[in-house]
Design a protein around this nucleic acid. Structure first.
Length: 485
RNA sequence: GGCCUUAUCGUCUAACGGUUAGGACGAAGCCUUCUCAAGGCUUAAAUCCGGGUUCGAUUCCCGGUAAGGUCACCA
């Protein structure tokens, strides 16, 4: 079939190691975007051929990550599909069939070299400063493969390979990367090198997107396709993502965060996607904030970057705030209230709703509410603030009588001219602002604000009065006056 | 060490041979302002080095340098 008109089928093929970092997810995202754009099929396949590294619960973990971000798969372990099963451990017969084909062609042989012998050979090669290649040690009369030994590929032709990559263009690797690698391990499971080829063929994958660390081993794969007399899929290799402030490929050891950590910290999935897609790709132009739908329509593989990108958490925070601004007021409020509740902060609905916009202004992700709560920065909304008398004085000047006079004035005005259930911030401002301007805004507004919040930093007094309500405001002003007398 | 890949402000990046090298995050400053946050404006900040090719290279070629990857019965 013509490569340009055939249906796009891509896959995300993680191994169940219990960890999904930014790099993994970005690969999935790029493949998903491309597939969606082309109305193709996105397959989730679990590469569980290494039972030693397998971590219980990681399949659920992988699915949770994908679901959180909205990267829906069209075929996969939970929903099945025409290419089932989607666990490699359930496809062992398939690998055996393909292995059999290679054996019949004389391109695979049994190998029972044990680990110690291999180590010895490797060490010797290292001493002689040359790469270790098993093909230099091919046994002359290998036994028939009975499934208890490992099965090795017999490289038919030692040569250089070059191929076209959708991101890097022409790529090549030398013959020293070609070796008699293991197809099937002695435990009966295939290696990644073999299993992914069989699966990509059987699942009719048209495009493989994966990290660029696979460049070096691509000649191995190409030689297997050749041996099988089949065409490889298209490749799009992706540059690495480096840790914030570092320049090493992101890995668990470098403190790479699991994606679910971002979920816990309260980042928006749309922001996460926006952030990840921009890490190594851009549409040209100045726009940087995109919805997922926009990304699906403008995503182009040709604009993927060749060089690696460093993670930048500050930019993620900014982007997240931009996406938060895209939310409706109702969505924001319910998210904030939900987060307050999870911090054991609750109150009357009306009260919390008045508080929400103020909190919104001060956070760039929902998790910032945890930080604020933990630091006690929200306490004064719910309880009488505790503070030193000296904090009431504007710029530290101990003007007791003046300060008292101003607070008494505000108290007076509010008592006489503000109805109990006012709903308008402007109204409060009108009552106080002119007086403050005449008598020095700092001299009036500062002590007023401190009497309400007990803090040197807080939202403006008008907003505080609005949130606290008339009674509580008067209450707190009296408290301040008591300190001053 | 062999092989492979990459290289524009601190960071993410734009500029498919001709631009005062553009934008964003961050930083600094100013405005607004009682403080914080938000907002507005402004500034500083980059083509790794050396050779070619060309009337002209960020851009093409070669060589250095630096960084990264890879050389498993891991993926």
């Amino acid at each position: 079939m013509d490569k340009n008109t055939e249906k796009v089928i891509t896959r995300f093929a993680p191994s169940p190691t219990g960890f999904m970092h930014v790099g993994n997810v970005r690969s999935a995202l790029y493949a998903w975007l491309w597939t969606k754009k082309n109305n193709g099929t996105f397959i989730l396949r679990i590469e569980d051929t290494d039972k030693e590294r397998e971590v219980a619960g990681s399949v659920e973990h992988i699915q949770e990550v994908l679901n959180w971000l909205g990267l829906k798969w069209d075929e996969g372990p939970d929903i099945g599909g025409p290419h089932a099963p989607y666990f490699q451990s359930e496809r062992l017969n398939l690998y055996k069939q393909y292995a059999q084909k290679l054996i019949e062609k004389g391109l695979a042989y049994a190998d029972s070299t044990n680990e110690d012998e291999l180590d010895k050979l490797r060490k010797k090669a290292e001493e002689e400063k040359r790469p270790f290649l098993f093909r230099d040690h091919r046994p002359e009369n290998p036994p028939e493969w009975d499934g208890t030994q490992s099965l090795r590929f017999k490289v038919p032709k030692i040569k250089s390979y070059s191929w076209d990559d959708l991101v890097f263009g022409k790529l090549s690797a030398g013959p020293e990367m070609l070796d008699d690698f293991i197809l099937i391990k002695s435990d009966g499971y295939p290696t990644y090198n073999f299993a992914h080829i069989v699966d990509d063929i059987e699942m009719e994958i048209t495009l493989v997107m994966r990290g660029m660390e696979y460049i070096s081993s691509t000649p191995k794969y190409l030689s297997v396709y050749e041996a099988l007399e089949l065409n490889p899929p298209q490749y799009a290799y992706l540059p690495h993502i480096m840790a914030d402030g570092g320049n090493k490929k992101l890995g668990k050891r470098d403190g790479a965060k699991d994606i679910l950590e971002y979920k816990k910290e309260g980042y928006l999935p749309s922001a996460m996607i926006n952030f990840l897609v921009l890490l190594g790709w851009n549409p040209g132009g100045d726009k940087e904030v995109f919805t997922v739908d926009e990304l699906i329509s403008i995503f182009e593989i040709t604009r993927i970057q060749k060089s690696g990108a460093q993670l930048n958490n500050t930019k993620l925070d900014w982007l997240n705030k931009e996406h938060m601004k895209l939310l409706s007021e109702n969505e924001r409020n319910s998210k904030i209230i939900e987060r307050l509740n999870s911090n054991s902060i609750s109150g009357e609905d009306d009260f919390l709703l008045k508080l929400c916009p103020v909190i919104f202004d001060h956070i760039s992700k929902w998790g910032d509410i945890d930080t604020m709560a933990l630091a006690g920065e929200l306490d004064y909304y719910f309880n009488q603030p505790q503070y030193e008398k000296s904090l009431l004085f504007w710029k530290g000047k101990e003007a007791v009588e003046e300060t008292k006079k101003h607070l008494e004035h505000v108290f007076e005005v509010m008592t006489s001219s503000l109805e109990d259930n006012f709903t308008d911030v402007e109204k409060i401002k009108n009552l106080i602002f002119d007086y403050a301007t005449e008598n020095g805004r700092g001299e009036v507004l500062w002590p007023l604000r401190v009497s309400l919040s007990g803090k040197d930093k807080s939202p403006d007094p008008f907003t505080l009065i609005y949130i606290l309500g008339k009674n509580e405001t008067l209450n707190r002003i009296s408290g301040a006056l008591k300190k001053l007398s």
